[in-house]
Design a protein around this nucleic acid. Structure first.
Length: 568
RNA sequence: UGGGGUGUGGUGUAAUUGGCAACACGACAGUUUCUGGUUCUGUUAUUAGGGGUUCGAUUCCCUUCACCCCAGCCA
């Protein structure tokens, strides 16, 4: 297990608990956790929090954390998911020696179940699911005991073994714990321990016909592995008494190889403008509302990776937001701020123009053959990191700027190019707008400027100042690229809050693909998967597979956009 | 309807367990700057409501309210 987070984990109620346990010698000073995903879907940002909490807690106290697949339901699970999960956990920065599987313990779990039956703690129920559910009662009204509840244990044992041998149809029988049908906690009203499933299991194949339920499998798996602190999300709070009950019985029978593990719940991560429900994410993919699990708009780890989010910033975010029992929803802006902070430090700068507007320098010199002179100007790769050095870019008499960077009739506080105004072209020259051409509809087609040869490199010898510095790309040397811009997949902070249906808040235009973008030649050197900053625009990730396609990871903070927004 | 959990700025998390409510994000106003980025500075809260104990309450007690979870042979 690695230890990748830069800063130490912040203290929280869970680490406080461990400190208290260690002080009392509860687990002999041992700390062991596990991250227990079910291999039936891809990991998302919510899992990233759980992973961080599980792994970092173990790291903080010198213990270990295992990746355990909670694979107790053959109907929904698949090795494709399991492989992807291993890959995603590794990408996040946590290395796992060898994942473990709940299915590794099926034999032990079965033997313990037999012991429960022998001791009158479990019985085979032959009623159908609907009946069992109806008999469970409701909030405030007690349940009804099954007619099979007090059958002889020999009979249950025989039935249970024949269930395993595949003698009975799916759903025809279950093994139930015999606890208390009147219990105020519904989880304790004779919960199901085993059900019959004839499907193919991703690891055990056809070997088993009965499968343990989550509740029967989870705590026991923890116990087998020597987990001390079994961390899970809040909705399992009402399961804790059951978790303890199973383990108490085994402890009484002297079956536990380690100290009895304890479950502790914490709030899951919710983010504004996104959904993390597995079902909703599956719907997005299956209905073709996104391009797949790795669509850069998805909150999946694969999506965020493709989008260009550094794993470190996801980890830092997860550590920073803390661990508590309060249901909460973090603003996506906070995550983005961690992404920006990191990328600002590590991403090299490049110049690219997304919506090109042609600019011609009317007084640019030509050489002896009558061709425009080409100058090579030097540009800093990253002002935040001198080690990244410099690069050169060609500059000649014709270049591209953003359409946004020129206005024939500028509003107040507009600093960019406008008739009569002088601006700096980053690293190159000062230019002054002397006019522009428009088409018949009045659209600006081309801007004319003159340049000051004395300002080469971007400084005026007379010290005169300029209101704005703009990026540019030499028209004769530009590399053509495509850029995918992303807005939030869900426009509402809390998707579905207004209508009850999250898909009502889906933004159908959340991706805009620009195919006629112009970039400086050195962009060709950006490796697949690398993230660079397009100056003044934002951070962009080079697609890992498709050359010259860039995904906008996150935009720069944009004061001008804020000013415009305020003005309406 | 029974049980369980949780309430601290716009958001999330803290507060040496009774002693000046802190940090980050966002927003706003400035500063710096060859990125309207970055940097730096300032502003942004009587701790869900009400009552009580106390010199003193986010913290202890009582009470009211709000939100979340539980009636899968999902996890």
């Amino acid at each position: 297990m690695s230890a990748p987070t830069d800063r130490p984990a912040a203290a929280n109620f869970v680490s406080d608990l461990v400190v208290a346990d260690n002080a009392q010698g509860t687990f002999g000073g041992r700390v062991q956790t596990r991250f227990p995903p079910e291999p039936n879907g891809y990991l998302h940002i919510g899992h990233a929090k759980a992973i961080t909490v599980d792994f970092e807690l173990a790291r903080e106290f010198g213990g270990q954390c295992k990746l355990r697949f909670d694979d107790t339901n053959p109907d929904t699970e698949d090795t494709t998911y399991a492989d992807a999960i291993v890959d995603d956990v590794a990408w996040l920065g946590y290395t796992v020696d060898e994942p473990v599987y709940t299915s590794d313990y099926f034999e032990q779990l079965f033997r313990w179940a037999e012991m429960f039956i022998e001791q009158g703690l479990a019985y085979v129920d032959e009623q159908d699911g609907e009946t069992i559910s109806a008999q469970r009662g409701g909030y405030g009204n007690p349940g009804v005991e099954s007619p099979h509840r007090d059958r002889p244990s020999e009979e249950s044992l025989d039935l249970f073994r024949r269930m395993r041998d595949g003698e009975f149809a799916d759903g025809s029988k279950v093994l139930r714990a015999k606890i208390d049908m009147q219990h105020e906690n519904m989880q304790l009203r004779d919960p199901v321990m085993y059900r019959i499933r004839s499907g193919h299991h991703h690891r055990t194949g056809e070997a088993w016909k009965v499968y343990p339920t989550y509740d029967w499998a989870h705590g026991q798996s923890d116990a087998i592995e020597g987990v001390t602190h079994s961390l899970c999300t809040l909705e399992f709070d009402s399961h804790r008494p059951l978790y303890d009950w199973y383990l108490d019985q085994l402890a009484r029978m002297g079956e536990l190889p380690f100290e009895q593990p304890r479950q502790t719940e914490f709030a899951r991560l919710e983010l504004t403008h996104t959904v993390t429900s597995k079902r909703k994410l599956l719907q997005l993919v299956e209905q073709g509302l996104v391009d797949g699990w790795d669509d850069p708009r998805m909150p999946t780890l694969r999506g965020l990776r493709k989008r260009g989010y550094p794993a470190e910033s996801i980890r830092e975010f997860c550590s920073f937001i803390g661990v508590s029992r309060t249901n909460s929803r973090n603003e996506i802006e906070l995550l983005e701020s961690f992404v920006r902070t990191r990328l600002n430090r590590v991403a090299q700068r490049r110049m690219a123009v997304l919506r090109p507007l042609e600019v011609v320098i009317d007084n640019w010199p030509v050489d002896d053959s009558g061709a425009p002179v080409v100058e090579q100007v030097e540009l800093v790769n990253n002002p935040e990191n001198a080690d990244d050095g410099t690069r050169t870019a060609p500059f000649s008499g014709r270049f591209w700027i953003e359409q946004d960077d020129f206005m024939a009739e500028p509003p107040p506080k507009y600093y960019r190019l406008t008739p009569g105004r002088e601006v700096r072209l980053r690293g190159a020259f000062f230019v002054t707008c002397v006019g522009f051409d428009s088409d018949d509809d009045g659209n600006v087609e081309r801007v004319h400027v003159t340049y000051d040869p004395e300002t080469r490199g971007g400084n005026a010898p007379d010290g005169r100042k300029v209101k704005s510095t703009m990026h540019w790309v030499s028209a004769d040397h530009a590399v053509d690229i495509s850029v995918a811009l992303y807005e939030r997949l869900f426009s509402a902070e809390v998707p579905g809050e207004a209508t009850g249906d999250v898909f009502d808040d889906l933004d159908a235009n959340s991706r805009e693909l620009l195919t006629e973008c112009k970039a400086e030649p050195s962009l060709a050197d950006v490796a697949p998967g690398d993230v660079v900053q397009f100056e003044r625009l934002g951070y962009f990730a080079h697609d890992a597979d498709q050359p010259r396609l860039f995904h906008r990871t996150v935009g720069l903070r944009d004061e001008w956009a804020n000013i415009q927004k305020r003005k309406g």
